[in-house]
Design a protein around this nucleic acid. Sequence first.
DNA 1: CTGTTAGCGCGTTCAA
DNA 2: TTGAACGCGCTAACAG
Lengths: 329, 329
Amino acid sequence: MVSIKEVAKHAGVAISTVSKVLNGYPNISEKTRAKVEGAIRELNYIPNSIASALSSKQFGRVALILDPKRQTQAIDQIFMQYLLGALDKAKELNLEAVTIFTSMIAGMNAEEITRHFMSQSISGIIIYGLSKEDKVLQKLIHGQEFSCVVVDAPIVNERTTSVSIDHEQAQYDVAKKTIMDDNCKRVLYIAGRKDGYVTQQRLSGMKRLAQEMDLAMFVRQGDFSERTARNIALKYAKNKDIVVCASDLMAIGAMNALIDMDIFRPVCGFDGITLMGYVGKQMNTIRQDFYSISSHAVEEVDRLMSGESGREVLLPHSIVKMYYKDIIC
Amino acid sequence: MVSIKEVAKHAGVAISTVSKVLNGYPNISEKTRAKVEGAIRELNYIPNSIASALSSKQFGRVALILDPKRQTQAIDQIFMQYLLGALDKAKELNLEAVTIFTSMIAGMNAEEITRHFMSQSISGIIIYGLSKEDKVLQKLIHGQEFSCVVVDAPIVNERTTSVSIDHEQAQYDVAKKTIMDDNCKRVLYIAGRKDGYVTQQRLSGMKRLAQEMDLAMFVRQGDFSERTARNIALKYAKNKDIVVCASDLMAIGAMNALIDMDIFRPVCGFDGITLMGYVGKQMNTIRQDFYSISSHAVEEVDRLMSGESGREVLLPHSIVKMYYKDIIC
DNA sequence: CTGTTAGCGCGTTCAA
DNA sequence: TTGAACGCGCTAACAG
């Protein structure tokens, strides 16, 4: 391991001078800068990020907190997109992203998690899909010890930024399009889990649409579960004109129920996972660009870490159908 | 941030004494050990892992190198299982796992990657699904600068351990079971990508079976692509009795081709991804426990980092069918 | 503009 | 058995 010391010796300057060119300080003459850069290149020197962090107390480490506990591996795609987006952007911004699954911090209280992160020199966190009932993470956020970005939860404070699409509008959009295509009046809406922030937002979008289009809407909690949605559809879909679901997985469950019942109703989903392409019937759905969302989340946490204050960031969405021919490769 | 200094003061001992109890040194009297541990608990002290690493030069950081570049997000499940298994075990062994996607090191040569990892104080790496053609990673492995575990590649040296299931036997097993169920003679085998180590191993298993059962075997490269497998099936399946595929994704492609052609042939796959449960027809497949494989990989890298030498580790597999009712929740 | 110096938090000799 | 002192590789005042 070649260290800054050797570079300094090689270039015939002081250690601190090397450090300064490394960190882009202004007061360095072109001549010495060139000398130092030459030495760096010759020796193939790469600064030791650990030592640098320890010394500067600027760690630039951010924790990505993901909760893939749900057995439903069909949505692992979402988490992978989150990870890819975050890691790519982190690399670009010269941050270190640490992947944390909630199983790893289960059973800890907010203080313990705080200390745990501190000891790992983590100064920023991104929480994906926070639950309303997660008192521990809530406390962590409100404690404001870390720069924090929450994806899909409308929490904003001095050190917390919220990033997501406009779920209210998106649910409105996709349902409206599907309803207009088939001129439906009686709607079965299968909502998400009560403890999810987006559940409420999406439901609001539906309510607005129902009012506006004078629809008869019947709502049931599907808990984001394919099986539950399936059972709800089996029970209630018959005398409805359309089934609107708050997630693709539930849409698939509902669609399979309809097929089993041998009746047809338009169904629409939410998320845009590729699994939709494997289901026989095509459905409208909201495509969320999870890669981009996560990428923005990292940008925002970087922004917070450099002292700016929290804000709300809304990203665009679109309505799509997933076709088998498009998703296979 | 409470530091070792405060603990020392609080306990009325020297910093070095605290350090010694922290690291389980022998020569500490019970009395002082108790004092120190008391202070640690009272102050909720957690050692700063960064500083500890810098000082000891033992970093215990391992890079998980994953290559999810393929668009096929249907197999993200596999990567998530790899990650979950690795991170859980890393936590257990007190290692820090760093998630690296190949996109992040694309375009670097072996030396650059080495320095990049060194600068990040990474001393162990786990490579998932190494390609035969990946000269850069090959060089990294053979350079033996890092403790290295390769998953699904038969490379072993002083500092390299290989972890995988017995692909040869697994392919033999699943094909044999499927063939025996239906008493087939003419086999279409859709193999993987030429540059994959497992492709060769699985093919060997098929060849052994073909010899043993006196089968007529017709082999085509499916490149692990659903679409390619589909096309191969469209072209060649008609006058065969069975289609054996080297991956689930290809099995799904082949099965969909058969459905389009409106003919039935038994198909079997390899991997055990849940997507199989969404396909109408059930197929035999090899279930690989990716979580466990990855978990073992971390154990092995830990073993290597503590000085032991490389070896080959073979993990068990099983034959299963994925049923829709089992995978939805 | 450059070099000297003092830490960052901790591990590890070596005396005492 | 304990503690003072040094150093890991680097950054950040401060002095020159």
